[in-house]
Design a protein around this nucleic acid. Structure first.
Length: 167
DNA sequence: ATTAATGGATAACTTACGTCA
DNA sequence: ATTGACGTAAGTTATCCATTA
């Protein structure tokens, strides 16, 4: 360590070396107690607290400044932890929902042949094409509600299961 | 057991900005 | 509208002390 080499002397720039005060237990206790009551001090409170603690008012002032800063830092750290946990739970929820979507998509695609909504005849899947707008292969409006229907109920009306003009 | 290096806590300082008379 | 005094927040520096290799 490079400290204490010029105790009681002046450093090269003519300034006396900065000395750090160590507060006693009792001083800390009183300051903390006072901080609990009020996070800021008016000049009168500062003066009387300084007298009580046998410190300079400036030292009391600095202590309160630093104490407010520590308090805020702690609060910020706690909020950060909370947000991290929240993010984690949202990520997990998102994973579950993605899995569910995959399962529902698998059910919806079903077997390789489908029934034509027009002729009620089975059609080979290879003759069908995907509508780029609604991403549906064919109309299933005449089928009973399924899990897939439940999902699509959440889709905006323009993407309803009724065949659009483009389909 | 001793010692130098290191990191955390915090007192003290500096700067920028807002408020008010 | 301008100005100077004052208080505070934010950022930085310096010091002390405990831990560790």
């Amino acid at each position: 360590m490079a400290s204490n080499m010029e105790d009681e002397e002046e450093s090269s720039n003519g300034e006396p070396p900065r000395k750090k005060l160590r507060l006693t237990k009792e001083q800390s206790r009183l300051l903390e107690e006072s901080f609990r009551q009020n996070h800021t001090l008016n000049p009168k409170q500062k003066e009387s607290l300084a007298m009580q603690l046998k410190l300079r008012p400036r030292q009391v002032e600095v202590w309160f400044q630093n104490r407010r800063a520590r308090s805020k830092l702690k609060q910020t750290e706690m909020e950060c932890e909370y947000l991290k946990r929240w993010f984690g739970s949202l990520t997990e929820q998102n994973r579950r929902l993605q899995r569910e979507v995959e399962e529902l998509r698998a059910i919806k695609v079903g077997p390789p042949t489908v029934i034509s909504p027009h002729s009620c005849e089975p059609l080979p899947a290879s003759t069908l094409s995907m509508c780029p707008r609604c991403e549906r292969v064919t109309s299933t409006a005449d089928k009973p509600p399924s899990a897939a229907a439940t999902l699509s109920a959440k889709v905006p009306p323009t993407q309803s299961r009724q065949p659009s003009a483009a389909c």
